[in-house]
Design a protein around this nucleic acid. Structure first.
Lengths: 199, 199
DNA sequence: GTCTATAATTAGATAGAC
DNA sequence: GTCTATCTAATTATAGAC
C-alpha cells in the first residue's frame, strides 16, 4: 500500500471512530486517546493527522452530513398548489426511518447545540442552514402564507417528535421495556408521527 | 445564623449551582470546582457536603424533580369514557409552556440518557417511571385498547415535539433568527403541538 | 463549617526517534 | 506515517489546619 493510501485509510478510520465517540459520549467526554485507540493507532498519530480536537470534530461533522446528501426526498409537487397528503406522510415516514437508522446525526447536533459557541455556529453555517431552508420551503407549500412563521416550530416539532425516541433508546428500554430500534417500533413511530403532522 | 442554618444554605446554593451546570454543560463537562465557584464556596467544601460528584448529581436531580410535584394537571375526565378534546389540548399547551420555562429538566434528562449506566437507571427508577406511567394512563384513555402499544411513541413524540425547540434555543436563534423563548413563540409552539396531537 | 494544600489521574498538545 | 516520551493544565478526591 502506498503512503497516500495508508494516509487516507488511517484518516478514515480516525474519523469513523470520532463520529461514534462524539455521538455517543459528546465532545467533552470524548478523549482523543480513546478515539485513537478505537481506530487502532496512537494519540500521537491522531494529532499528526488532525492538529486539534476541534479539527477532528469538524471532519466528523463533514462525514456525518456527507451521508445525508442528497437530502431525503421532499414530496413531489403534483401540478397543483397543494402537496398530496399521502405523499407528505410518506416523506415524513421516510424521515422517521432515517432518524431511527442514523441516531448519530441527531446526537451529534444535539451535543453541539448545548453551548452557544464557535462550533455551533460553524455547524449551523456549514451543514444545518441548507437543510432547514428546505424544510421551511416545504412548510410554505403546506401552510401557504403562514409558512414562514410556523417553519421554526414545525422544524423543531417534527425533528423532536421523530428523533427523540431513538436518541433516548437506552432510557426507553429502561422505562418502557420495549426496544425502539426494532423494525416494528420504527414503523409504529413513523406512522404515528406522519398521522400527527398530516391527519 | 446557626450552624444548621448555615449548612442548609450552603447545600442549597451548591445544589442550585449544580442544577444549572449539569443542565447547561452536562455531567462530564461540569467540574466540581466551577460549581463550587458559582455557589461562592471552595471545592473542598463541596466535597464536605457531597462526598462525590455522583452524589451531588443525585441531589441536583431531586431538586429538579421536586419542582414538578404535583405533576402537570391531567385533563379532567368529565363523566364520559372519552376525554374532552379542548381540555386535552389545554393540558398539552400547559406541558409546552412548562417545557419552555424549565428547559433544565429536559436538558438534564437528555444528558443522563446518553449513556446506559447506573445514573440513567437511578433516574428512571427514582423520578421518570412514575411520570411515564401517568402519560401511559392518559394514552389509554385517549386511544382505548391501543393505549398500551402507542404509549411509548406518544410519550417520546410529545416530549420531543414540545421540548426540543427550547433545548436547542441557541441553535434556533442562529438558524432561524427567532428567539423561541419569547412569550409569543412559546404560545405559537404550544398551539402547534396541541393541534398536532388533538386535531 | 470552611479553607488551603496536595495527591493521583487524565486531558490535549508537542518533540523527536525511526 | 507512525510511535514513544513528555509537557502543561485541569480534573476528583483526600488530609489537615483553623
Amino acid at each position: 500500500m502506498s503512503r497516500a493510501e495508508q494516509r487516507e485509510q488511517t484518516r478514515a478510520r480516525l474519523v469513523d471512530a470520532a463520529v461514534a465517540s462524539f455521538a455517543e459520549l459528546g465532545f467533552d467526554a470524548s478523549s482523543t486517546r480513546d478515539i485513537a485507540g478505537r481506530a487502532g493507532v496512537t494519540q500521537g498519530l491522531l494529532t499528526y493527522h488532525f492538529a486539534s480536537k476541534d479539527e477532528l470534530w469538524r471532519a466528523a461533522a463533514d462525514r456525518i452530513f456527507a451521508a445525508l446528501d442528497p437530502p431525503p426526498a421532499a414530496p413531489e409537487d403534483r401540478g397543483g398548489d397543494r402537496v398530496d397528503d399521502e405523499a407528505a406522510r410518506e416523506a415524513i415516514r421516510g424521515y422517521v426511518r432515517f432518524a431511527a437508522r442514523h441516531p448519530e446525526l441527531f446526537a451529534f447536533v444535539l451535543d453541539a447545540s448545548r453551548r452557544d459557541d464557535d462550533r455551533l455556529r460553524w455547524l449551523v453555517d456549514t451543514h444545518l442552514r441548507a437543510r432547514y431552508d428546505a424544510v421551511a420551503g416545504l412548510a410554505a407549500r403546506l401552510y401557504g402564507d403562514d409558512g414562514a412563521s410556523v417553519a421554526p416550530h414545525l422544524y423543531y416539532g417534527l425533528t423532536g417528535a421523530a428523533s427523540l425516541l431513538f436518541a433516548q433508546a437506552a432510557e426507553c428500554r429502561a422505562l418502557t421495556g420495549i426496544d425502539p430500534t426494532t423494525d416494528d417500533h420504527v414503523e409504529r413511530h413513523a406512522e404515528l408521527v406522519a398521522r400527527l403532522l398530516v391527519p
